[in-house]
Amino acid sequence: MAAAAAAEIRMATVFGEARPENGDHDADDLPRRPVLFHANAHFQGPLRVVATDLRSLAWHCSLDLDHLQDLQDDVGIGGSCSDFLDYLYSSFSSAQVKLLFPAAQGADTAELVATKAKGLPRITISLHPVATSALKDVIADFSLALYASYKTKQEHASRVASPSKVPPAKATKRVAHVSRRARVRGALLQDADENDDGSS
């Protein structure tokens, strides 16, 4: 049953930047480096969200089908789970993505907040800090996934931009024209040979 439910979670990979904003925390508590995020859902796994500065900080969460349905109810968007995942993807792909640090939840907890467009329902996903022992692996996996996404887009762009290959035209042999002077010279030489044969 769990495998069947997980198979319904399908969302294309999306990367972006989340602008850090504080609640009641001091500005010095905010990450000093840009924070990138990654959201994707495999066919046999939950929706996974990771945010990191690619150096020393990372937050993450995993949302199975039940969690996604609860989130859909909280946001107030109707339709199927697939429709909600499309809305999630569009929201994550917008330029309106922030990483908030609510004071009521402690300095370690963060919220990834995304808005598809002004006036539309806002997506808020709670993230938890990655354990120090797993931090290097999470950042390494994030970097490899980012490179794989970049490589896929480059290959797609290359296929679209490259012109269709046209087979080269078949070469035709040109018959060299014998010049008039050469023809005359050949005739003279032939006459000279005949004269020599006659005189011998």
Rank of each mutant, 00 (worst) to 15 (best):
A6C: 04
A6H: 11
A7I: 04
A7G: 10
A7S: 14
E8N: 09
E8W: 09
I9L: 11
I9Q: 05
I9Y: 06
I9G: 02
R10S: 06
M11F: 05
M11V: 04
M11L: 06
A12M: 06
T13E: 02
T13K: 03
V14R: 06
V14A: 04
F15S: 02
F15P: 00
F15N: 01
F15R: 00
E17Y: 05
E17C: 11
A18T: 03
A18M: 08
A18P: 01
R19D: 11
P20H: 12
E21I: 12
N22F: 08
N22S: 15
N22P: 05
G23A: 08
G23N: 10
D24K: 06
D24C: 04
H25K: 06
H25A: 08
D26H: 10
A27R: 14
A27E: 15
A27F: 14
D28W: 11
D28I: 11
D29N: 10
D29E: 12
L30Q: 11
L30D: 07
R32L: 11
R32K: 15
V35R: 04
V35D: 04
V35C: 09
L36E: 13
L36A: 13
F37M: 09
F37R: 03
H38C: 08
H38G: 01
H38N: 12
A39M: 05
A39I: 03
A39D: 01
N40G: 04
A41P: 00
A41V: 00
H42S: 13
H42F: 07
H42Y: 05
F43E: 15
Q44G: 12
Q44W: 15
G45K: 07
G45D: 09
P46R: 02
L47A: 05
L47P: 00
R48M: 14
R48W: 10
V49C: 08
V49E: 03
V50K: 06
V50Y: 13
A51I: 13
A51L: 14
